[in-house]
Design a protein around this nucleic acid. Structure first.
Lengths: 220, 220
DNA sequence: TGCGCTCGAATTGCATACATATCGAACACG
DNA sequence: CGTGTTCGATATGTATGCAATTCGAGCGCA
């Protein structure tokens, strides 16, 4: 009664238990408290979240659509496990799309937002005992920035979805890679700030290739 | 006992009501018996399919993940409506990915499968009172052929999903376009049969651009 | 000892009952 | 006549009970 109907749509979203479950499970997976390949037992997880199985299943269904969980034997849900092959394939598709997105975005990103992301990266480099989580958030912020400003929201959505896949692999298998990432991210930022489309394309392509090389070298 | 556990995964899939609902609703949408933008009333649709709301909701959830329905006001499901802008954006992403896929596939597609698709196209051109449905299926078959054989299953999946979006628009807004499609499809086939990667890339790019031009010209 | 069988516990599939939110129409009030 | 309000119908959100299936442990039999 005292609240407007849809006002707070950007922030909280606690309103119903499905959404709560959705966010909670996503968080559990990203925080590795649910490991890749692990079978999800509905009743147990529902109890753990203090909800019934119905909204939990609803959340799992949505998460399946988003690629975080899969139906294992046709019966139970399992946390999605991304192997090296799928990771590299996803990266390859990103390598096709993201340089294009960056190129399209060059010249269309407010300078202040670029400055904010740059500041975030710098503060992460300075911090001694940095948080892996914060690093990934920063990574998200940069990539989201130029993908969103590419002017093609469909393109941005596709990349977002691919990044869910690659992120799942990275949190499970890849050690922290803050140093080269930061350098390459700064190179991308520089090109975007200079509004140089070709340079931005090259910088992003170089970045993604570098990630792939790192993965191949790291994972045995 | 007499059946192996997961053998028939490709074919039937009737076994449970969720899957039945999933396929039924997808069919209803593709057959325009549920129109774009239309609100889905769970109980009515559930009755219509002779199942309860639970498996229907499950199906709708999955369909949402696949992009055929969306949650309208946060409350009800609606059949997804793709407007011209989103259609063109999706087409633009396909224009980036599919020529690449065709190029990667050239030389890796069994000639017999190419011949089958060619035969299908020819039989459609000859048929006097052809079926729109059959035309769409043929379209699917050709595109699926080179996307699947690109060697990158992730790429193929992304394109599949984009094609769901573009198809939704096409069935709602575009008149039959069998003639130019057939010609362009045959050009693609020719390049693929010649195992000429560059020609295949060009043919696919030309095809997708042509579709976009047609859409712009047709839709007012 | 090794193999198959049966039975039971665990888990998912589905339906239904109930709670809650939303939309619209009729109505009262200004 | 216009506006706000209340109330009822409708639809969705959630919990729970039961049916059906699966998986494995223990047992019997060769």
């Amino acid at each position: 009664m005292t609240e407007a109907p849809g006002d707070w749509s950007a922030g909280g979203r606690t309103e119903n238990l499905s959404n709560l479950a959705y966010k909670s499970v996503a968080e559990l997976i990203r925080g590795r408290r649910l490991r890749g390949g692990e079978t999800i037992v509905e009743s147990r997880l529902a109890d753990q979240l203090n909800i019934s199985r119905t909204p939990l299943r609803e959340a799992l269904q949505r998460l399946e659509g988003e690629g975080l969980v899969v139906k294992g034997n046709g019966r139970s849900f399992k946390v999605r496990h991304v192997d090296l092959g799928e990771y590299l394939q996803s990266l390859r598709v990103r390598e096709i799309l993201e340089p294009e997105a960056a190129s399209m975005a060059a010249g269309h990103i407010p300078l202040q937002q670029l400055a904010e992301v740059r500041a975030e990266i710098n503060s992460l480099r300075d911090a001694t005992g940095y948080h892996t989580d914060a690093h990934w958030r920063s990574d998200d912020n940069l990539h989201e920035l130029f993908n969103r400003h590419s002017g093609n929201e469909v393109l941005a959505g596709v990349v977002r979805s691919l990044r869910v896949t690659t992120r799942l692999f990275e949190i499970a298998r890849l050690a922290d890679r803050v140093e080269p990432d930061s350098a390459e991210h700064l190179a991308i930022l520089e090109a975007l700030e200079a509004e140089d489309a070709k340079a931005a394309r090259r910088a992003v392509q170089n970045h993604i290739r570098s990630i792939g090389d790192f993965a191949i070298a790291t994972v045995r």
